[in-house]
Design a protein around this nucleic acid. Structure first.
Lengths: 153, 153
DNA sequence: CTTAAATCCGACTGGTTATATCGTATTTTG
DNA sequence: CAAAATACGATATAACCAGTCGGATTTAAG
């Protein structure tokens, strides 16, 4: 039920790059510092993002990373799916990670997970880096509002 | 982003018990067979469910497990949260597993995960065993409908 | 042409979690 | 007393996660 640190860190770095889209390359050192991510770990992640074609790099002094595509062309869904494999809470309602379950013909709770999956997929696949970057951070006030009624999560 | 097998197996067993609510106890052997779950593993899980007060057991021959509470009084949210700790996709939007993140004041993608969390929590906490048990399995037809448009998950 | 600073690449580690399995003790009913 | 169930604790093991490290290569500036 949780995304990996890799995904978290990848998103942090990507949004920094969005803010500097078409600017000079930003070195890992800087990406790590600004986003509070271990530098050597981020190194791995950036390499991965590059292999996916989401970022480009230039080596050497004055080098660093830039976004390779327009921020409208990358979604959070793609990023999460790449690092964590699937978005679905359970394999039997996943497309990319579908695995048949012997109980499918009789399982009733599967419907609930399918509902969750569909919502998550919708939200994540509509969330382009461009759109999300335009938004504002969640305020403390908003958080308390959300959590009152306190189902807890 | 995924629930554990424990949760999956626990739910399978619970729904079987719902179907036999107020009937004779059902032994693990039978619960395991019907739900296609490893018996020795299910043993552990049932013990855990008992400790939570969701099921009761009677030992000895003719023994087994029964639901301890009315199926309206147990939600899928409770079960998932118990076994997997949290429902939230990331700690910074979790109540039960909240951990402050240094980027909160500036993070923009947090809002997306908060949205997902709120939906998941809503769905899961409204899903009582009684309600869900009344429903029907997801048909193949429904699945294809859902997956056309094919964001994949 | 040297050097500083960056990316690139692959290996490695240490810890945790997921998914069980096993042996045996205890309880209950016929 | 025997059969069949739960109860309990230990063990296994494989995968995965988060992070570190050493060193090779590339580039720009002086």
């Amino acid at each position: 039920m949780r995304i990996s640190k890799r995904t978290d860190y990848a998103l942090r770095a990507l949004f920094t790059l969005v803010d500097h889209y078409r600017g000079a390359p930003i070195p890992i050192r800087e990406l790590a510092r600004r986003n509070d991510v271990p530098k050597r770990f981020l190194e791995q992640i950036m390499l991965d993002l590059k292999a996916q074609g989401w970022v480009d790099s230039t080596a050497g002094i004055r080098g660093g990373y830039v976004l390779a595509r327009s921020p409208e062309k990358i979604t959070m869904g793609e990023v999460v799916r790449h690092f964590d494999g699937v978005l679905a809470p359970i394999e039997c309602v996943s497309v990319t990670g579908y695995k048949r379950c012997s109980q499918e013909p009789v399982c009733r709770f599967r419907r609930v997970f399918l509902d969750a999956r569909n919502y998550i997929a919708g939200v994540m696949d509509r969330a382009t880096l461009a759109e999300v970057a335009k938004g504002t951070p969640v305020s403390k006030r908003e958080m308390s509002v959300n959590f009152i009624g306190g189902e807890g999560i």
